[in-house]
Design a protein around this nucleic acid. Structure first.
Length: 214
DNA sequence: CCCTGATTCGC
DNA sequence: GCGAATCAGG
């Protein structure tokens, strides 16, 4: 699979949202490695993320004895203010725009790179209208610490807890029983000995609506 | 060992 | 441009 616009977009969005390269690679699927993600991210110019390997530049650390204090120059220049980007207010009248309250909608990025609809948001599909700035949605507090869709990978248990759409829906997240999508405990739930046909319960309650039929 | 991102370099 | 291999810190 190549880097289509959508996939690049997913990469950008997730990268800027702080997702790890592994998570992004997972979401993109199609055998994309985290190396591929990282490589692409860098080529795209995305970068500057706290790297575990610190590039401690030889910061010309003045010897302790040599430089006792920073020269008390006349006017001590204050640190350059972060200068929050001024909102581009162009044409339109300076209407206060009271209506548009930017609700922090939490969307998750699906494996195909599409944006999933948030629980309360049934109707309006993705608005193609470009928002001024993409503010990476911070995970809702309910999900904090939980294993979300984006956390899934090959080695953690994908057993769902709760139901999709519920605010605290998440996944087990334990380490998998090697070779299975679930941890040992949930494998016990997922895989059970075959019962005689007549004794079998009608609705096989499989998570996710069951495995893909393909 | 597991994870992370950065970099290199052959393709 | 791509990404596996490699590096290096947590």
């Amino acid at each position: 699979m190549s880097w289509t616009d959508e996939r690049i977009d997913t990469l950008k969005t997730m990268w800027e949202a702080g997702q790890t390269a592994s998570q992004i690679a997972d979401a993109l699927g199609d055998g994309v490695s985290r190396n591929a993600v990282i490589g692409k991210a860098h080529r795209l110019g995305l970068q500057a993320r706290p790297s575990p390997v610190k590039t401690s530049e030889p910061e010309a650390v003045a010897p302790v004895a040599a430089a006792p204090a920073p020269a008390p120059v006349v006017a001590a220049a204050p640190p350059p203010p972060p200068a929050p980007e001024p909102v581009e207010e162009s044409e339109t009248v300076t209407a206060p725009e009271p209506v548009r309250a930017p609700q922090p909608i939490l969307r998750s990025v699906g494996p195909g790179g599409f944006l999933r609809q948030a629980p309360g948001e049934q109707q309006p599909p993705i608005a193609p209208a470009p928002p001024r700035r993409l503010v990476p949605a911070k995970p809702a507090p309910e999900i904090a610490g939980k294993t979300s869709l984006l956390d899934l990978n090959d080695r953690i248990c994908k057993w769902p807890l709760g139901h999709p759409g519920e605010p605290d829906f998440h996944f087990c997240g334990d380490k998998v029983n090697p070779g299975f999508p679930y941890c040992v405990q949930h494998c016990g739930h997922a895989y059970q000995a075959q019962l005689p046909r007549r004794d079998r319960r009608p609705p096989p309650p499989l998570p996710f609506g069951g495995p893909r039929v393909r």
